[in-house]
Simulated assay, not measured.
Amino acid sequence: MAELYTGNIEIVEVSPRDGLQNEQVQIATADKIRLIERAIEAGARRIEVTSFVNPRAVPQMADAEEVCAALPQRDDVTYIGLVMNQRGADRALDTGRIDQLGAVCVATDRFAMANQGQTSEGSVEAALAIIETARAAAKSAQATIAASFGCPFEGEVAEDRVVAMASALAAARPAEIALADTIGVANPAHVASLIAKVKEAIGAIPVRAHFHNTRGTGLANVWSAIGAGAVTIDASIGGLGGCPFAPGAAGNVATEDVVYMLERAGIATGLDLPALIATNHWLGELMGKDLPAMVAKSGGFPVPKTQEEEFA
């Protein structure tokens, strides 16, 4: 599929939010800022920096305003704040530092109730309102359809349901629509099929893809998504991530693994792999554990040594 793709792929770095939100060890605000700074130094230009949710539900995100106040001043970086409702949208905009609101709706009722305390249709209505709120504030907004490929409570999710949700969101003209494999159950064939149908339904609005590597299919799904027309991929340094409201959800696809695969296939990402690997090691030390990403363990493609170096 790589030979069919002629452009670059944009990576949205989600480690400061999705990567950390389910971790039990509380990460200091200053360390979150350093993670964001390191992501920028590695070339990230869209970063999901925090979420504006109830701190009792997601304690790791309780410092959302403090994180925003300390964000580096960069005209070339888009800072994304995840919001679930009008209260979250207002908080994000009040910081004056969030460039783009990330709305979330959920493909099934039971997961929507667990995640947001509303039905699936209610989550779509909330996302539409968030998009309009962003527009009124001269900001952009995008929307993610969670559990697009399967639900932890209801199992299979009909493709027609996801396509109908994407069509409803498209009417509000978001910056993009993302399909999220929240619990890591997708397979490449399903990914290709659903993204193709959503693209046909929403026209010129770009498609973003968000995969978890729960069952080891994350990279294959990224490859399939790009072949089907997704132009942006979410990824998390180190492969951290998970959803507090989705039983069994594990880490996101790792930024360094995605970058290695795409760059070796001739698809540019604009990210610096050695810098990502170094950040993986820094983050692992901070959290006191080895992180799931594979490339940080093995290193990038081997560089040939000269005879002098080999026998030195």
Results as ranks from 00 to 15, higher is better:
M1R: 12
L219E: 08
M294H: 11
H190M: 14
L273P: 02
L240I: 07
I177V: 15
I145W: 00
G266P: 08
A69L: 09
V222N: 06
H210W: 06
V295G: 03
L169W: 14
A138G: 04
N54K: 11
G251L: 02
A220D: 14
T95V: 05
V12H: 06
Q73W: 03
A146E: 02
A178T: 15
Q86S: 14
H190G: 12
A196H: 14
G117H: 12
S120H: 03
G242K: 06
G117V: 00
A168L: 14
L35S: 03
V231P: 04
Q60A: 13
T214R: 01
T119Q: 04
E37L: 06
L169A: 12
A296D: 03
A166R: 09
V259Q: 08
R56F: 04
A172W: 06
Q142K: 09
E66D: 15
E66W: 00
A164W: 03
E176R: 11
E13M: 12
A134M: 11
R87W: 13
E3R: 12
Y79G: 00
Q21Y: 00
N115M: 02
N280S: 13
A170G: 15
G122L: 03
E308H: 12
I47H: 01
G184Q: 00
V124L: 11
I80S: 02
V163S: 08
S148T: 13
L128R: 14
D234V: 01
P304Y: 13
K199A: 07
V231C: 12
L291H: 06
T182P: 02
G241S: 09
L271C: 05
P274A: 07
T6R: 13
S123M: 02
F211R: 07
L276E: 10
G216L: 08
S140F: 00
G81A: 14
A254E: 02
L169I: 15
L71G: 03
G241R: 02
F301H: 10
N54L: 10
F301Y: 09
L262A: 12
H212A: 09
F111C: 05
L273H: 08
P206K: 10
T214N: 09
F149A: 05
V222L: 03
E66S: 13
L169V: 13
F311I: 05
P59V: 10
R135D: 08
R264L: 10
G284P: 02
V207A: 04
A254H: 05
S167M: 11
A143S: 14
C105P: 01
T255A: 13
D94T: 14
A296C: 06
A249E: 04
A172I: 03
G242T: 10
T50M: 07
V12I: 14
R38G: 01
N54P: 10
D18T: 04
G299E: 13
W223A: 12
I11Q: 01
L273C: 09
G239I: 04
V67I: 15
V207K: 02
A57F: 13
A89P: 00
H190C: 09
T6Q: 14
Q60V: 10
R34Y: 06
P188S: 10
A143E: 00
A137E: 14
N115C: 01
R161F: 01
Y5F: 15
G300L: 11
V104M: 08
L71Y: 05
V253H: 03
G43M: 08
K32H: 10
V58F: 07
A180F: 05
A136Q: 15
L71P: 02
E3T: 10
F211W: 07
V198H: 01
A143Y: 00
T182Y: 01
S224V: 07
I11Y: 05
T108Y: 00
I40V: 15
A57V: 05
A92G: 05
